[in-house]
Amino acid sequence: MNIFRLAGDMTHLFSVLVLLLKIHTIKSCAGVSLKTQELYALVFAARYLDIFTNYISLYNTVMKLIFLGSSFSIVWYMRYHKIVRRSYDKDQDTFRHYFLILPCLLLALLINEKFTFKEVMWTFSLYLEAVAILPQLVLLQRTRNIDNLTGQYVFLLGAYRALYILNWVYRYFTEPHFVHWITWVSGLVQTLLYADFFYYYFQSWKNNQKLHLPA
């Protein structure tokens, strides 16, 4: 464990807590894409298959449970909670996210480190996480006034993977065998997808204005 990875995990933890806080306290999911939340639930389900068979550390297991629990409960809130679901604008959240799942699965079957079920599912979760934010970014472009919590959520979600890239650089130089091209490339693609969001987020913070993405 290094400082970059710990900072990345904490940033990721904060992003889901910010979202849960928003949905649980003000009982609203306005501006949040259910499709992105469903994709993330799928990412964690596919990545943490070995949560009970491959014990690494208490920290690792606890964090996996938090990510699984939070992502599935956010999907539950947005789908079934009688108050929260009313604030979900489904006619704006129209990204066809099923078109993301199949290509990621096919790519994972083609390009992976080892052709086993667990390894393919793990690789699938990496590819899917790289594109999971797309429905949310599209929704943000359509949402007139993005509320602060939603903007912070997306910012933290992008920042965590950027910190992971620093973690991979650090591990590459400190651990001889640590080479994971698949993880690195998909992590880089994922972070690059946030590039324009980061730009507008920084601009709104610098000029102290409301965050607004151009259509």
């Binding site: 995990d9 070995d50 491959n54 690494i56 690792n60 964090m63 793990w122 640590f178 994971h180 993880t183």
Partner: peptide, 10 residues
């Protein structure tokens, strides 16, 4: 073991 250790990230 190598592979298991490498899967120590979230």
């Amino acid at each position: 073991i190598k592979n298991q250790v490498d899967k120590d990230e979230l």
